[in-house]
Amino acid sequence: MGQVVALQSLITGRQIWQGRAVPQPSGGETTGWPALDAALPASGWPKASLSEILLPADGVGELQLVLPTLARLSKQQRAIAVIAPPYVPCVAGWENSGVAMTHIDIVCAGDPRDALWASEQCLRSGSYAAVLSWPLHADDRALRRLQVAADNGRALGFVFRDRRHAVQASPAALRLELETEPVRQIRVRKCRGSQPPALPIPFPADGW
């Protein structure tokens, strides 16, 4: 303990890692769900990033999460790509949520690799405001490519995956898990810019 070092010299000498947080995301695209917006650090979907939505099964309200956003974008005459969806989008159902279907391009791709390629192209192009995709066999690298493409193209990327992928690390800026047990709720698994909230966010089916 004989040696006394001034703290300032250590800091200026860059010998101490101060754990400075990454810059706060500057605002996001509102999700249209006030409770969800309040829980997210960007108060909405992180801009120009990938958002991952994990599901226990199809048909638990995963589209309801994004439909308000799609409705707002399509009313601003901005194009949206839906790449290799698991089912056919039902026009009446989407229009009930306020989506203008003329701005929705549905891209059919038989091969999962083609679907990934198309997702990356659409995200990178900067011509689509939002891109929805259902990557089946996407690994960490593929998702990272999508995240970089979304950043380059300043687009909102939505990736829907099964919840068994929750244990894997993901480069997405935001990870949400939809739960139906014991009640319908959203659990934030990861959100860039802050700690994920500890409590799940209620997402009652009566709301949609």
Partner: peptide, 23 residues
């Protein structure tokens, strides 16, 4: 940015002529 028309052509070239639909 790639114009939307060019992007659609690129997708169609690889995925087939009927790959892009608007319902």
């Amino acid at each position: 940015a790639l114009p939307l028309g060019q992007l659609r052509e690129r997708l169609r070239a690889r995925l087939g002529d009927r790959a892009i639909q608007t319902l």
